[in-house]
Computed example of a mutant assay.
Amino acid sequence: MKLSQTMAAAAERLGHRFGNPDLLIEALTHPSVMGRMDNQRLEFLGDRVLGLVIAEALLAEDSVAEEGELAPRLNLLVRKETCAEVAASVDIGAALRLGRSEMLSGGRRKTALLGDAMEAVIAAVYLDAGFDAARALVLRLWGERIARARGQGRDAKTALQEWAQARGQNPPVYADIAREGPDHAPVFLVEARLDDGRAAEGRAASKRAAQQKAAEELLARVEAEK
């Protein structure tokens, strides 16, 4: 099968010339497209390839970190939100094959769809040219994120919970405040609150991301008040 113009452009942005273009087509085909091909199996494989490449890179980047330090960095780099950010950086959304309902609901911008497609693309490169090619792709696209992960290893929710417990408080409570925007592009407003009454809000396109932003804001606030 011949690559569409948008898929060919995506391959250029990825920096990989596919010997078997069908693999890229499969990687960029969402299950909402009726037919025998979609990217779910490649997503499954790509998730494992990504995890191995990132784990290897983290060990090389920090030769003294212990497992307890490396695991949160790995989780940060392979989570769906990060995969979606990387996909957006090379405009994978423009090349996705979507069913009509997903297309009309803004599927090209959805975190889950972009993250799944990015994992599938990694698997497509792996099957097309082997592990070295997949490793090169991941290291090229994740780039500075790997180096920055050393200072971002713990997510904000974990850090805030540890801060509270170290001071004899219960873990922070997260409350949904509002849901704004259209159905295809919602924005969630979440509040993080500590036992002592201090609170902060976070706004993002998913509840999980909004909780993280609220935790970041509240953690920055309480640490500034030391």
Score class of each variant (00 low, 15 high):
Ala8Leu: 14
Leu160Ala: 11
Asp116Asn: 04
Phe44Ile: 02
Leu50Gln: 03
Ala65Phe: 12
Arg100Pro: 00
Val187Ile: 10
Leu45Cys: 04
Phe44Lys: 12
Gly68Cys: 10
Ala133Pro: 12
Asp132Leu: 15
Phe188Tyr: 04
Val49Thr: 14
Pro182Thr: 09
Leu113Lys: 06
Arg48Gln: 11
Leu24Ile: 06
Phe131Glu: 11
His16Asp: 14
Glu81Lys: 08
Gly153Ile: 08
Ala112Lys: 09
Ala117Trp: 01
Cys83Glu: 14
Gly15His: 09
Gly168His: 14
Ala55Glu: 12
Arg148Val: 01
Glu102Ser: 06
Leu3Ser: 06
Phe18Cys: 03
Arg208Asp: 10
Gly143Cys: 12
Val138Ala: 11
Cys83Ile: 07
Ala95Ile: 03
Ala120Glu: 01
Ile54Thr: 01
Val138Cys: 14
Ala88Val: 08
Ile25Ala: 15
Gly51Ile: 08
Gly35Glu: 03
Leu137Met: 10
Val86Glu: 10
Glu225Gln: 13
Arg145Pro: 04
Leu127Phe: 00
Phe188Glu: 00
Leu98Val: 08
Val190Gln: 08
Asn75Val: 13
Val125Asp: 00
Leu219Trp: 01
Ala129Phe: 05
Val53Gln: 03
Asp132Ser: 14
Ala178Lys: 14
Asn20Lys: 02
Ala57Lys: 12
Leu3Thr: 04
Arg150Lys: 15
Leu70His: 11
Glu225Lys: 09
Glu12His: 07
Arg13Cys: 09
Ser32Gly: 12
His16Met: 11
Ala215Gln: 02
Val90Ser: 10
Leu3Trp: 07
Val125Pro: 01
Pro182Trp: 05
Ala185Asp: 15
Gly197Met: 09
